[in-house]
Design a protein around this nucleic acid. Sequence first.
DNA 1: TATGAAACTTAGCACTCTCTAA
DNA 2: TTAGAGAGTGCTAAGTTTCATA
Length: 504
Amino acid sequence: IVEHFVTIQLFRLKKFNKWEVQVMNKQERSTITDLGKCNFRDVCSYFQQKSEERKARSKEEKQEEKKKNEALIEEFGFCDWDGHREKIGNFRLEPPGLFRGRGNHPKMGKLKKRIIPENITINCSKNSKIPKPPAGHKWKEVRHDNAVTWLVSWTENVQNQNKYIMLNPSSRVKGEKDWQKYEVARNLKSKVDRIREDYMRDLKSDEMMVRQRAVALYFIDKLALRAGNEKEDGESADTVGCCSLRCEHIKLHKHLDGKDFIVEFDFLGKDSIRYYNKVPVLKQVFKNLVLFTENKEGPDDLFDRLNTSTLNKYLNSLMDGLTAKVFRTYNASITLLNQLLELTDPDDENVASKILSYNRANRAVAVLCNHQRAAPKNFSEQMGRMNEKIEKKQRDIQDAKQETKSAKSDYKHNKSEAKRKAYEGKKKKVERLQEQLIKLEVQATDKEENKEIALGTSKLNYLDPRITVAWCKKYSVPIEKCYNKTQRDKFAWAIAMVDDTYVF
DNA sequence: TATGAAACTTAGCACTCTCTAA
DNA sequence: TTAGAGAGTGCTAAGTTTCATA
């Protein structure tokens, strides 16, 4: 209960005002009637002290702990899957605590209860070594279902949803699924022209549902919007995707900033990340949007005749495996490919500038998919320090050039070996400094452009890794520059498969 | 056709670890 | 040696899609 109150206090400190006390007994409830009158300072400082102690551990202690952790991973972090030893993704259960949720979540502050063995379902083969529950406990169920990939499941009490323990992305099942996903997206590449023709035609359909479907598809394709399932009111934060857009989420401008037919989007998407975009659209799309919003209020559905289910059913009839989210994968990957083609300078041998091009291509995708992040702490100070460094380097170069000049004239007047060497040395120094300057400038540009953009999500989930692998091979960029160890493990299938001729 | 559960992918944040430069 | 930045990792919420059932 102490931990519970500490967390509640933390919520309060962060100006969150919803909480509930589900863990108090009768007596506690009668004693504690107003949390505002409770003083958690001692509890708080207790945990702060614990945290300080942890930070102050000696090297040996840290080593010791690391070893113990590795042993734990060794014992519980792997499973046997069809005779292969596979890494498990999340083998530690979620601890009890207060549910936060993202954005303005109605269930924020509810108690997430401790999971006990009686909540746990184990899924493994019949003839395998079935894990034993802790003494005095029983599993909820042990089943042997090879049609699913999870090893353990339980029901989380706040949202009443199933949670699973599954394999790590480096595992074979996950890798094969990933590969399959990109194959579907590649398949879309050959069908997309036809599909686009279809929805262009459908923009003028007599049937309202078809028109709405066409406009929704236009958004999903052009803007990489998510499908947008309906959500139960009051169960989660108010966020939307394409099909669940409401009239209040768009503004229609016949003319804006010298352009025609502008749609201004402003809504909260997944994780309550704001999507704000002013987009010029086709005249017919604009006309349709005017039509769809006629006689409606802000909270009314924009696409009242459409939902993700009917949309996906239609898409599946156009191509095997096609769903709304395939467009995101396809458009992300094709954007990376096109941007790489456009931004890579084959004559520039410098690996750092190649990587800048790659990151920029990656960034174009992140912008398309609206993958944002909070700007890093002290960002402007960091930027300032970097710029100072650049200026200093520029001064150093000026100085070094001056020195080179005088070394050169020295050598002219005295053609000795020593003078020649001195001159050569100075020249080398200038070159070295100039290279360092370029590297610094590249770093600064990259950092500035990346201020509020998260590259990781698209790299991990939307970009066909074979495009990256092939690009690296083509331009002799070591794959380590694009993918770290974990990413190389996840994309092992792609790295093994592809040479520089791969075409998405 | 609607509804809800199940199973899976996608998402950003906070933390820790590691590297670098002063 | 140390602080600070950046890279890497863990965590778990929040989506999408599929499937079963009414």
